[in-house]
């Protein structure tokens, strides 16, 4: 296992990548929008304590995230991004759907360049996609910190 992940996608992320690959380009943005809409709201304990969230300044619109590793070593992810930022919410929604509840090792094993496998580069632009890679990098860093 390397810092940037082993290069294989976990089954949930693979399914997401396949879903994106299976729809024509014209529908990929709508799929991303569905992920934006499915992003769970921030639990109340974080709403009351925004200081517990880490900002991801690499995203075009401010995004905040929190990472919790429970007693069974399962990782839980929490995101907060404004409604007017559906792209950023969509990225967060993909990471939530693909990673929430997995083990710390599985998350650390996720390829850092995973976002490039969704076929969104030309639709969203590489600059915007960088935001998703940055979210993943920060999630991994927090997982590592909490493991130690």
């Amino acid at each position: 296992m390397t810092a940037s992940g082993s290069g294989t996608l976990n089954p949930r992320l693979r399914e997401i990548a396949e879903d994106f690959g299976a729809v024509p380009e014209s529908e990929r943005l709508h799929l991303l929008l569905e992920f934006a809409e499915e992003l769970p709201p921030l639990p109340e304990r974080y709403c009351e304590h925004p200081d517990l969230l880490e900002q991801v300044p690499e995203c075009q619109t401010p995004l905040f995230l929190a990472v919790e590793v429970d007693a069974d070593c399962a990782v839980h992810l929490f995101f907060d991004a404004p409604r007017e930022a559906p792209t950023t919410r969509g990225f967060a929604g993909i990471l939530h759907a693909g990673l929430d509840g997995l083990s710390a090792d599985e998350i650390l094993d996720t390829p850092g360049e995973f976002s490039s496998q969704l076929g969104l580069r030309d639709l969203v632009s590489p600059l915007r996609l960088r935001g998703m890679a940055a979210m993943l990098a920060r999630i991994k860093r927090q997982v590592r910190e909490q493991q130690n």
């Binding site: 943005l29 709508h30 991303l32 929008l33 934006a36 075009q60 619109t61 007017e84 930022a85 559906p86 792209t87 950023t88 969509g90 639709l123 969203v124 632009s125 915007r128």
Partner: peptide, 9 residues
């Protein structure tokens, strides 16, 4: 828009 998906919403 700044956000490439905002139009779709």
């Amino acid at each position: 828009d700044e956000d490439v998906l905002l139009y779709e919403t």
